[in-house]
């Protein structure tokens, strides 16, 4: 066996191959990631500078930045931006305090733990398509359970069908599916809190509100920040449930930017315009990653002591 004979030649060979091993670990995966991340980006960049109707056999035509400037003259685009901001803002603005509140409520609830944990985990793992279909059914204007229940208390609405109510109606399933996500993060956080500050507070006779405000909240801040940032980004990515429930309608009242990209690319086949908008989404996501997510996740990972 070669491995047992220690000839000088073998040692040199094994040294070289040992030095190569880290590279062999790194290279294949990294190359695939780079290819699958960079190539589509460059492709989108090139497409966005062309007028490219998929149905046009003549192919694409160079138009420079026309696809980008078109958005700034396009009122629908600004509506899409506002809708996206409202969707993300309202959803995350409700999910964080609600999820935190529920975590505080359930934190000390040891009875039926399996049952309520299952009720939290199931919404998070469900396919957004299933969630969309389910809520669309519950919102049904004639036979939906939500229409029925709200009718009992005298509240009438077209829900998904109303131009003013549609956006609110698609936010509720979002809250239903992702508040447990915030709760699960907060529960993990609450489990790590030290006892000493609470004992001290009890000795000093602090009120429940003071304990929450001056002890729990500051200690929970890193967890709340992570929940906030991740919710912000996933709400910004949303497509499936909206596509399923309203398709962006009625009119364009629920057309967030993702839905608009789909409209442009796969309903009207304007690949150039769609790519330009996609690049805008890409840039916003990259800026968020660069300045918020990277710092947040890296600092957490380095900080082994806190085991966050």
């Amino acid at each position: 066996m070669l491995t047992t004979t220690h000839t000088p030649g073998h040692q040199r060979r094994s040294l070289i191959s040992e030095r190569m091993v880290p590279w062999l670990f790194l290279a294949p995966g990294l190359l695939v990631i780079l290819a699958l991340a960079l190539y589509p980006f460059l492709y989108a960049l090139s497409t966005s500078l062309h007028s490219y109707y998929l149905a046009n056999p003549a192919g694409s035509r160079w138009v420079g930045f026309d696809n980008f400037t078109a958005f700034f003259r396009d009122n629908n685009f600004w509506d899409n931006v506002t809708t996206t901001i409202r969707y993300v803002g309202v959803a995350v603005g409700i999910e964080i305090p609600l999820g935190f509140g529920i975590a505080l409520l359930l934190h000390t609830q040891t009875r039926f733990k399996l049952v309520w944990r299952a009720a939290l985990i199931i919404p998070v793992t469900l396919a957004p398509v299933v969630v969309g279909a389910l809520w669309k059914f519950m919102y049904n204007n004639q036979f939906g359970i939500i229409t029925y229940l709200t009718g009992l208390v005298g509240f009438e609405s077209l829900f998904l069908g109303g131009p003013n109510s549609a956006l609110w109606s698609i936010i509720v399933p979002e809250i239903w599916q992702w508040t447990p996500f915030v709760t699960l993060i907060c529960l993990a956080g609450l489990a790590t809190l030290p006892d000493e500050p609470y004992e001290a507070a009890a000795v000093d006779g602090a009120s429940a509100w003071q304990i929450l405000r001056y002890i729990t909240l500051p200690l929970m801040k890193p967890f709340l920040t992570i929940a906030f940032v991740l919710r912000l980004i996933t709400a910004y990515k949303v497509f499936d449930p909206i596509y399923l429930m309203t398709g962006g309608g009625p009119g364009i009242s629920t057309q967030v930017l993702s839905i608009r990209v789909y409209e442009l690319g796969f309903a009207t086949l304007q690949m150039g315009r769609a790519s330009a908008l996609a690049l805008l989404l890409f840039i916003v996501a990259t800026l968020l990653t660069k300045f918020v997510v990277l710092r947040l996740l890296e600092s957490r990972q380095d900080d082994e002591g806190r085991r966050l």
Partner: peptide, 10 residues
């Protein structure tokens, strides 16, 4: 962090 919509066309 990339939204699917940002890369679906390419």
């Amino acid at each position: 962090m990339m939204p699917p919509a940002a890369v679906v066309v390419p």
